Amino acid sequence: MLTALEVFTTVEVGLMVGVEFSVAFVMNRIFNALPDDSGQLARAHGGRMLGAVMPFWYIGSLILSAVWAITGWHHHGAGLVVIAAVLLIVSVLMSVLLLVPINNQSKTWTPENRPADWKEQSSRWDRYHYVRVVVIIAAFALLATALA
């Protein structure tokens, strides 16, 4: 049963990393290259769509990692899983404190109601997101190493 938990947790965190990496290095670059107001509208839609799913994914990944750390405490790699769980806590805190406030505003923006500094706010969100991606990649790498 522990092996199934280990594999499921690693796959779930890996998929989350893939989505967030794609947002950072593929989707946002596509959105930024769109003409006129299309990029801002695409970001707003992405913020609504992913903003509804990602909290469950982040918290779920954290819970699974914590359960793995607790149930596998006396097994090989438990320390790596604990560090990964701490990194996932950091990613959740970053999300709640830094990214979600910007996302909650930007997901309601339209070309008619967006603030004058919307590009700066989007760039700030991107910078925070890059750091969060590095954090969750590190957590994933630790989980994968613990699984091996």
Rank of each mutant, 00 (worst) to 15 (best):
D37N: 11
H74D: 15
Y130S: 08
V133N: 02
L34H: 06
W73L: 15
N28Y: 13
G18C: 04
W125Q: 00
K119Y: 05
G79V: 08
H45W: 15
V23G: 02
L80A: 12
V17E: 00
S91I: 01
N113S: 09
Y130W: 14
V7Y: 12
A78F: 11
G60P: 04
R124E: 08
L15S: 07
T108Y: 12
S106M: 15
A44F: 05
G47I: 03
L2E: 13
F140Y: 07
V90N: 03
A85Y: 01
T108H: 14
H75V: 15
V82A: 11
D36I: 08
R29T: 08
P35W: 07
N104H: 12
I137R: 00
V67I: 12
R43F: 06
A84Q: 01
A42T: 06
S123T: 14
V134A: 14
V90K: 04
L80C: 09
S22Y: 15
L87S: 00
R124K: 14
T9E: 04
V90H: 02
L142R: 00
Y130K: 12
G77I: 06
D117H: 05
A33G: 13
W109L: 01
V135Y: 00
G14C: 02
R43C: 04
I63N: 02
K119F: 03
T145W: 14
Y128Q: 10
D126E: 14
V13K: 00
L147I: 07
R43P: 01
L34R: 06
V7C: 08
L62T: 05
L142C: 01
A66W: 12
G60M: 05
S22Q: 10
G60R: 04
V86C: 06
A116P: 03
V90R: 01
N113D: 09
K107T: 08
N113Q: 07
H76N: 15
A144G: 11
R127W: 13
L87C: 01
D37Y: 07
A85L: 02
P115A: 01
Y128A: 09
I136V: 11
P101G: 06
F56A: 13
A116R: 10
R43I: 02
F21M: 11
V96R: 13
E12L: 15
I63E: 01
A144P: 03
F21L: 13
L88S: 00
S91Y: 03
N32Q: 13
I70C: 10
W57P: 05
Y128T: 04
A69I: 05
I59R: 12
L88R: 00
I136M: 01
L41K: 15
I137M: 07
L142P: 02
N113A: 06
T110W: 09
G72Q: 10
W125Y: 10
A44I: 04
V67T: 08
G79L: 05
A85D: 04
G18I: 01
I136R: 00
L98C: 14
Q40H: 12
I137A: 03
A139E: 00
S122N: 11
R48I: 02
N28T: 14
I89Y: 02
S95Q: 14
N28W: 12
A42K: 06
A69Y: 05
L147K: 10
K119H: 10
L50H: 07
G46E: 04
F25C: 08
G46Q: 06
F8H: 09
I83V: 13
G46P: 05
A24Q: 09
M27N: 10
T10N: 03
V86M: 07
R29Y: 12
W109F: 07
Y130T: 11
T110G: 03
A42F: 09
P101M: 04
